[in-house]
Amino acid sequence: MVLSGPHQSVRPSVLFGRGGSVRPSAFETLPLFWAPDASSGLRDLSSAVELATRLGLPVEPSKVEGPSTTLTFLGIEIDTVSRELRLPRDKLLRLKGIIEEWRVKATKKSSVTKHQLDVLVGLLSDAAQVVPAGRPFIRQLIDAKSELKRASHFTRLSPGCKADIFWWSAFMEEWNGTGLFPTRTIGPVITADASGSWGCGAFLEGPCFWFQVQWPSEWSQVNIAAKELFPLVVAIAIWGPQCKDSQICLNSDNQAVVSALATRSAKDPFLSHLLRSLFFFLAHYNISYRAQHIAGKRNRAADALSRNKLNEFLSVFPQAPKSPSPIPGSLLSMLLDIKLQWTSTHWKELFRASLERV
Rank of each mutant, 00 (worst) to 15 (best):
A133W: 06
E349K: 15
Q212G: 13
P182Q: 09
G56N: 07
P31A: 08
L332V: 03
D245G: 14
C249M: 02
G134Q: 05
L93H: 14
I238W: 06
T80N: 10
D268Q: 13
P326S: 11
R83M: 15
Q319T: 03
A151P: 04
R298E: 09
F230C: 08
F137S: 10
L355G: 09
A144F: 04
I287D: 08
P24L: 04
V358L: 08
L42Y: 13
G5I: 01
L278W: 03
Q319F: 09
K109W: 00
I338S: 12
F230E: 03
V234W: 07
E101D: 13
L3Q: 08
F33W: 05
C208I: 01
T183N: 10
E218H: 15
S40M: 05
R300E: 12
D143S: 14
S169G: 09
N251V: 01
W219V: 04
L204I: 07
V112Y: 13
G66I: 01
E65H: 14
P269L: 04
S169Y: 14
R23G: 03
S288P: 07
R43N: 09
A26V: 07
R86H: 11
L71S: 10
K63I: 01
D193E: 04
F171Q: 14
L204E: 03
K114Y: 01
A170W: 09
L74C: 12
S21R: 15
F181G: 05
V316E: 14
F137V: 05
L87N: 12
S288H: 01
N176F: 09
R298M: 05
I224Y: 05
P67D: 02
Q341K: 13
K267Y: 04
F209Q: 14
L3H: 11
P321E: 07
W215T: 05
L350P: 11
D143A: 13
E101K: 11
G56A: 06
G56P: 15
S4P: 12
P328D: 06
W34C: 13
L57F: 09
G206V: 02
P318H: 05
E101H: 12
N311W: 04
F27C: 11
D44M: 13
P231A: 04
L332D: 09
D268S: 15
N223T: 01
P36D: 06
P67K: 09
G20P: 01
G66Y: 02
P58F: 01
Q212F: 08
S197N: 10
H346S: 07
F166S: 12
G296T: 02
L157C: 11
A163D: 10
S46V: 00
P231Y: 00
F16D: 00
S333P: 00
R18W: 05
T29L: 14
T345Y: 03
R89W: 00
S277V: 03
T107A: 15
L148C: 14
K108D: 12
A194F: 01
I287H: 09
R83E: 15
K105F: 14
K348Y: 00
S265Q: 08
L180R: 15
